[in-house]
């Protein structure tokens, strides 16, 4: 049984790759929290389209079954992301992700130093939010080494 894998499937796979890439660009470049989540959903669309096409190439239903699980996880992710965004918005009254740049690890430079950063949220907003523990071990002889 030969498998149909021709230009039709190749171009659908390329469209899927394009959707994924566009979502990745949006996720990195935009500053609105809602648009970040929507960009992640766009990436999931690309992955779903690839899975469906692979399932058609192999003539079985596994690709579509996986896509249903992707849909499930996307729905969970959307709900969790929405509640997280709401919780962040209640503290900063803005959807700007730059306000939360203090959440990065302490030894990482602030993003895009050429531009003046907006005033970060007050430190009391971080109460109750788990902080990242510093990862790794400081080299011997540095100040951080015990």
């Amino acid at each position: 049984m030969s498998v149909p894998f021709g230009p039709e499937e190749i171009r659908i796979l390329l469209v899927a790759a394009g959707l994924f890439v566009l979502g990745a660009i949006g996720f990195v470049t935009r500053r609105n929290l809602i648009l970040l989540v929507l960009s992640a959903e766009l990436m999931l669309h690309g992955v779903s389209l690839s899975l469906v096409t692979f399932g058609k190439i192999h003539q079985n239903s596994e690709g579509q079954a996986f896509t249903i699980f992707v849909l499930t996880v996307a729905a969970c992710e959307a709900g969790l992301a929405l509640s997280l965004v709401l919780s962040l918005y209640r503290k900063s009254h803005s959807l700007d992700i730059r306000l939360w740049s203090e959440l990065r690890e302490s030894d990482v430079n602030p993003p895009d130093q050429g531009e003046s950063l907006p005033a970060a949220v007050s430190t009391s907003a971080y109460d109750g939010i788990p902080k990242l523990t510093p990862a790794g071990v400081a080299p011997v002889g540095t100040a951080g080494h015990p």
Binding site: V28, T29, R30, R31, N32, I34, V37, L38, E41, A74, A75, A78, L82, V85, L86, Y89, S94, L95, D96, R98, P111, D112, E115, P118
Partner: peptide, 28 residues
């Protein structure tokens, strides 16, 4: 489900229209 709830949040959070941070993008 997804788009409708997200539109609700956007309209709730940005009642005065697009904010300044939407006019900028980083690391394009």
């Amino acid at each position: 489900a997804v788009i409708v709830t997200f539109l609700f949040v956007i309209m709730l959070a940005q009642q005065s229209g697009a904010a300044g941070y939407d006019q900028r993008s980083q690391q394009v």
